[in-house]
Design a protein around this nucleic acid. Structure first.
Lengths: 232, 232
DNA sequence: ACAGTGACTACACACGCGTATAGCGTCCTT
DNA sequence: AAGGACGCTATACGCGTGTGTAGTCACTGT
């Protein structure tokens, strides 16, 4: 998928590539070694010969994706003028490279496998967020790393929940049309605060009271009325 | 888990509850009917007797979660003063009710099963966003439903990627401490725009040029240099 | 020439799993 | 009191799957 002709790749690389696609399409459990081997044009025994076991094959896939994303991140760090949004070349190129592996990435992130990959992206978000903090007037209500982690998760939500997003926007997320639609929505959301800092402070205070003293009447009423549906 | 003593539930409800937990903990494929039956204190045959097949058991779980969330949403709609952030009672109660099923919800959303559930939350987000739009000065850069869909995905990112978020903040997301930490971060992020509308317009324009004419030199260079790592 | 090494295949094994079936006890209905 | 319906168990079947083993072929260094 990276190079135009898969025939040029070594068998090992072809197996890994086929595994990435099969794991992405059907998930790790439902994907079978035999089907991966068939897609790669090799025997199922060769998969074992190169990777040892199905789990190790998955590990190799994760490792490969980690290296790929790291390379892209390094390039972005080197090429992108910090804080400028005028150059989307690397962003677009990175997305083009990762496109065939989006479904694998989504699954790997969702089931918690790709920890190193997430942390890598969180680190990059943290750098970016630290710069944004400098222009900021009021002190943040949470630590830098915490906000970076949450923000990273939010940014990854779109590919991870791509099925729902695609359904919601009425276009496949992995086509240029869907991608553009979502990018516009993201830029709009990122450039407009959803609530005022005062609202946030109010909500924070309200949450504190809820947490500190478990409100007896209301909350129990919710749970109790909820239980009533539970009569099957 | 809803009621204090699982023994009081009917066998069918106990099976569903055990399935929710097992599916959440191990995933649909890895979870076995036998283990679910054991956790529910029944024979494996009874699972089949009540639900027919493993897939139908999963469907029943999805249906149950859908009804649960709908009930909570209806209560939130009825009880919450629109646009006010001072009353977090229902939010806290809803989270308490859903807590044991968070992992199931995360998995169901990630693999695209719980479509109706996502759409339901997206509808609610859309209502909320429509109100927020009224106070807004500049016209949105994307349709209401598109923004609501993306925003819903972003809101769900934290539970879906809970493993990574927990690791990043150094505390389990499903404990009061982790929950509070993340809530503060979310409120901070929601109350502060990450970029100015001008930045967004610049980025939009940049994206348009990238998409309209595929830039030959730079982008290919990125992809080419990426391929060079691909020598295993 | 020749052993050795690694890529690669074909085939068989063992086991876990979803599914199917037969049967038992109990409660409600008529 | 008969009898069916239902909740529930025990046991077995069959298939798909990851894994293991033996063997072939090609290439390399000595």
């Amino acid at each position: 998928m990276i190079q135009p002709d898969p025939e040029d790749l070594t068998a090992r690389a072809r197996i890994r590539d086929a595994a990435l696609l099969q794991f992405g399409e059907h998930g790790f459990e439902r994907a079978t070694i035999r089907e991966i081997a068939k897609a790669a044009g090799v025997s199922s025994g060769l998969v074992r010969h190169h990777f040892g076991s199905k789990q190790e094959l998955r590990d190799a896939c994760d490792e490969f994706m980690y290296r790929t994303v790291r390379k892209l991140n390094d390039q972005a760090r080197a090429g992108l003028i910090k804080g400028a949004f005028g150059d989307m070349t690397y962003v677009a190129a990175a997305r083009a490279v990762l496109l065939p592996y989006q479904k694998y990435l989504a699954r790997a992130l969702a089931d918690g496998t790709a920890a190193a990959l997430f942390d890598q992206m969180a680190d990059m978000t943290e750098e970016w967020l630290a710069m944004a903090d400098e222009k900021r007037a009021d002190p943040p209500a949470a630590g830098l790393k915490t906000r970076a982690t949450v923000l990273t998760a939010m940014a990854l939500a779109v590919p991870v929940l791509h099925q729902h997003v695609s359904r919601g926007i009425g276009a496949d997320l992995f086509t240029p049309e869907g991608d553009r639609e979502v990018a516009y929505a993201l830029l709009d959301l990122y450039s407009h605060a959803l609530m005022t800092p005062d609202d946030a402070a109010t909500a924070r205070a309200a949450l504190d009271t809820v947490w500190s003293k478990p409100p007896p009447a209301d909350r129990d009423a919710v749970i109790r009325s909820f239980e009533e549906q539970n009569d099957d």
